[in-house]
């Protein structure tokens, strides 16, 4: 439903987005990841027709955003960064304006507004000027606006930014509920969110796609993938570490003391091998030695570590070549 091809944006000499390409099908929730300034928002602004691309194309539901702008925009629900709205209006007035622009009228409009208000739990603040609302409510007004016309394509720039954990949970639930019927793109830099709601993640850095895959596949690229983590309480000795290291199939080990506990992270020789055997071996050793075990588990991988290894927009390091996906 969304087909992006070679999308590029220059601002003067600066290239914000550099030949990005991807597609999103119905039922997919694409998580758009990247450090600040990587080009996430710029890409979204181009897909929704707010910025004109310097090169490349974006098609939404078969409509090219440059040559068939209005038709494409009708199929999109868009939550811009920061959820801008007309602050002097009330949420009800604002949603009525959006409904009118979206060519909903009469009972259709009122039904659509009721549905969006219910989904975003705005009922209590409908008559207060948007300027006087808290950040969380303002964000939800933006969400309500974007889903008002039940669009087949949803583009959301940091939909949970500024929400408290409960509200974040609700918004994620809302997105998950809608995901079967829509093609959804969300940008975020909250990595747990990707794991929680996205079926696919795209990491971009300095305007380029550096990784594209399911969250599990991305985590598999982590060096923590299939590592075993063992936390012991009390004093640990050098012998313990040596015994752990002597186990079969262990390439290296990290020891992190935290308060009265110590965590050993054991990296297998081959990350592709199942961690079950290694976990078993560690468990047996701990039982035989009668160690005070607090936690023992195989790691699925750490998304933040993958993220850090792939992106460096916010640092000055430039190595020219990169490990592109």
């Amino acid at each position: 439903m969304i087909v992006i091809d070679g999308l590029t944006k220059h601002f003067g000499p600066f290239t914000a987005v550099d030949r990005i390409g991807f597609t999103v099908e119905k039922g997919e929730v694409l998580g758009f990841l990247g450090p600040n300034g990587a080009g996430k928002s710029t890409t979204m602004k181009m897909i929704t027709g707010f910025l004109a691309p310097s090169a490349g194309s974006a098609r939404v539901c078969g409509h090219d955003i440059v040559t068939d702008t209005l038709a494409a925009q009708r199929t999109i629900g868009y939550l811009p960064e920061g959820a801008p709205a007309y602050g002097d209006m009330t949420p009800r007035g604002f949603l009525r304006f959006i409904a009118r622009v979206r060519r909903l009228s009469g009972t259709d409009a009122e039904k659509a507004i009721d549905r969006a208000v219910e989904a975003t739990e705005l009922g209590g603040v409908l008559e207060q000027p948007i300027d006087t609302l808290s950040k969380g409510f303002r964000r939800r007004v933006g969400l309500a606006q974007s889903i008002l016309h039940d669009p087949p394509v949803l583009i959301m720039d940091e939909p949970t930014d500024g929400l408290d954990p409960n509200q974040k949970f609700e918004v994620r639930k809302l997105i998950a509920r809608m995901s079967a019927e829509k093609a959804i793109v969300i940008s975020t830099h909250i990595l747990e969110e990707v794991d929680a709601i996205c079926t696919r993640a795209l990491i971009i850095d300095r305007g380029r796609v550096v990784a594209d895959g399911t969250p599990a596949a991305l985590m598999a690229r982590s060096r923590y993938h299939n590592a075993v983590s063992l936390t012991l309480s009390g004093q640990t000795t050098v012998q313990m570490a040596e015994k752990l290291k002597a186990l079969n199939g262990i390439a290296s080990m990290e020891i992190v003391p935290r308060g009265a506990e110590t965590t050993f992270t054991l990296f297998p020789v081959s990350a592709r091998e199942s961690d079950v055997l290694l976990v078993d071996a560690v468990a047996r050793l701990a039982r035989d030695e009668n160690w005070p075990v607090r936690a023992l588990y195989g790691e699925p991988g750490r998304l933040d570590e993958v993220f850090r290894s792939l992106t460096r927009s916010d640092t000055t390091v430039t190595d020219g070549k990169k490990d592109a996906a």
Partner: peptide
């Protein structure tokens, strides 16, 4: 200044 222009221009308004 408020950014609402992004909303306006991404709505299907000629």
């Amino acid at each position: 200044r408020t950014g609402s222009i992004e909303l306006l221009l991404s709505l299907p308004v000629p």
